[in-house]
Design a protein around this nucleic acid. Structure first.
Lengths: 248, 248
DNA sequence: CTAAGTTAGTTGCTAAATGACACGAAGTGG
DNA sequence: CCACTTCGTGTCATTTAGCAACTAACTTAG
């Protein structure tokens, strides 16, 4: 069934990775795309950009760009730079999703992209009604689908990003990246519920969060409203996303 | 803090993804690497190849190659072709791990690679002692480390692959890909234990597997030995990797 | 032919974890 | 000061994990 080939022949040698410059094969076009997700009024939204040039001119697409070998340290740095220059978003949570590459996603030929997911705090981005209101906009991501048809295979990438986030929310503290630095436990629970699309028992939720031990109270600070004030929490310094032992 | 930029300026436009051909930026070199994992005598092993040319001539490296735009449908197809041509391994379990790319991993400059993980059944590959015994070999992956120093950032990729597999084994049926098509429940339990590095309670393990409902008995077939024969199982047709509700 | 040894597979029990729910606490507004 | 709302915790039935014992089915030694 499986076995090791006898020898790498001449053709194989020529196409050895990182051995010689490719011979007879064009280098695929490499891009970096970022799926930006946030919660707006309790619904997951993504930031899309209307393409200004062919292919897919006038079609909505993910925020993306090329690697700048002179500027970019690595792939994540490239994603962060693109995020900053194209969407004006600075240093949020960015993680690589996966690569997508084939012959058909771009009419110009074989291309590859490194898809990333960026999470930004709820409602910190106000929708723009200025010069670029018509080229950059938030779109709701309801039941694993967005309203507009997307360029390239971006619908597939977006779906993969949302699936990744939904799965990861089940067993990590990922939602903290969708909240401002200080929040209440009820705020956090709402985010979990909104992304997972199902209610979570309050006492169980609080038990899990307490066990995970990644939050601390801000002593003496409470969210005031027309009822019992809620304790304000923040993430313990030095901690990032926490993995729970079990599902939330 | 976060906001949408006013407009994409001239420079941004020039570097718009998939809009125009890159101007002033070289295309990074694109490769596909595969971390091949199997169990040999109860220990996780990976298949490495000694590099025949610079850079890193004579150093052990992952199996990898270039994308062939004419032949390869997509990234996974490229990984499968490389697997076949370089290691003689056909259609096993292949999944993309993630992309790695920066300016320092290859002395020739900015390169990117799409790292994949391939799992192949235990002990179906006999170690070769033929012509290429010295250029292709199995290496044990013990405590998140392999014996030889690896070329490029392959040590990091290998570590990421092993971490991914270890994590995924906790809550999926991934180990079935490390077994032949027919196996006993004890075989399967052994694989889980060997990869996770801890014992699992027999009765609990069998309960979980039964609940997950992805195996079926092969009626009348038993593994014969010098004691009570064990029922042979196979994966139900049409099912691939199953996700459990809880950890194993 | 039988007893000992080994692995397969199931069952039972106890302690801990989980899920559903209720109740007291702490504020506001009429 | 009473009704109302949300915060936060406590209670308890049910489920699950961890452990161990037990039966089943076979081989081999004597």
């Amino acid at each position: 069934m499986a076995g090791v080939t006898e020898r790498t022949d001449q053709k194989d040698r020529a196409s050895d990775p990182e051995t010689t410059v490719t011979e007879g094969f064009e280098r695929p076009l490499v891009t970096v795309d970022v799926v930006i997700l946030t919660l707006r009024a309790g619904v997951l939204h993504t930031l899309l950009m209307k393409r200004g040039a062919d292919p897919f001119q006038g079609t909505w697409a993910l925020i993306g760009g090329y690697i700048h070998p002179q500027e970019d340290e690595d792939l994540e740095a490239a994603a962060r730079r693109i995020l900053r220059s194209k969407a004006g978003i600075d240093t949020p949570y960015v993680e690589q999703l996966q690569g997508f590459g084939d012959a058909r996603r771009d009419p110009r030929g074989w291309t590859v992209t490194f898809a990333h997911v960026a999470l930004i705090p709820s409602d910190t981005l106000s929708p723009r009604h200025g010069a670029n209101a018509e080229t950059v906009a938030w779109w709701p991501v309801d039941a694993r689908a967005v309203a507009p048809p997307l360029a390239f295979d971006h619908a597939r990438i977006l779906a993969a990003a949302v699936t990744r986030v939904r799965n990861k929310v089940e067993y990590t503290s990922l939602p903290i990246h969708l909240l401002p630095p200080r929040f209440t436990l009820t705020d956090l629970q709402r985010v979990y519920e909104q992304i997972l699309g199902r209610p979570i028992e309050k006492s169980q939720f609080r038990r899990r969060i307490a066990e995970a031990n990644f939050l601390e109270t801000v002593p003496g600070e409470f969210r005031q409203s027309s009822n019992r004030p809620a304790q304000i929490y923040r993430i313990k310094t030095g901690l990032s996303t926490i993995f729970f032992d079990r599902t939330i």
